[in-house]
Design a protein around this nucleic acid. Sequence first.
DNA 1: AGCACGATTAACT
DNA 2: GTTAATCGTGCTC
Length: 197
Amino acid sequence: MPKILPRKFYAEPTGKLARKLLGCRLVRERRGIRLAGRIVETEAYIGEKDLACHAHVGKTPRTRIMYGPPGVCYVYFTYGMHWLLNVVAEEEGFPAAVLIRALEPLEGLDVMGRLRPGKTALEFCRGPAKLTRALDIRGEHNGADLCRPGASIWIEPAAVGPLRIERTPRIGISRTPEPWRSKPWRFTIKGNHFLSR
DNA sequence: AGCACGATTAACT
DNA sequence: GTTAATCGTGCTC
C-alpha cells in the first residue's frame, strides 16, 4: 500500500509546504498504471494580498478551491491550452496553494512518452504544463483530494532527508506589481537537471 | 455581449 | 530572441 501524506502535512504556511514538497513523490494512477515523479520545483501563492495569486480577486467559482481544506488539488486552465497543478495549503478559509512546476520522472516513463510524443524523458515533466500533460492531469482533477485512499492522484513522502534548496523569485509573473513580483517564493532542488528553463 | 489577459509551450528566425 | 496557439475568467458596458 502507498504511504499517502496526511492532511496535516498540508496544513502549513505555504512557503514551508512548498519546501517540504521538494523530494516528495507525486503519483498519478491512470488505468491501473503508476505515473510518478519526484517534485523538484515548487512555487508558493499566498492569500488575497499576494497579487500574483489568483485569490487576489477574492472568492470566485475559479478560486473557491483555494479557500477550502488543504491537501486538495487546485487545477486551472491557462493560455487556452494548458492545465496547471497546485496543492492547496494552510488552514481552511485562507486561500493559498503550491504550484508544482517540475518533476523528475520515476515511474511509468513509457506511458509518459506516449503522452508527450517526440520528447525525451528530460522534457517529460520539465515545466508546470508539461508535467500535467505527462501525467494526464486535467480539469477533472480540480478539487481532487490528495489524502483520500483509493484516489487517482496523491503524494508520497520524500525518500531521503534534507536537500539543498535554492530560493528565487517566481516565474511568469512579470506583469505583477512589486513587491509581489520579486518575492523569493520559488523553491528548487539545487542543481537538479529536471528544473524548468 | 464584448474585451484583455494569462502561474506556458513549441516552433520558429 | 520572437511569436502563434487558443479559451476560461473576471471585468466593463
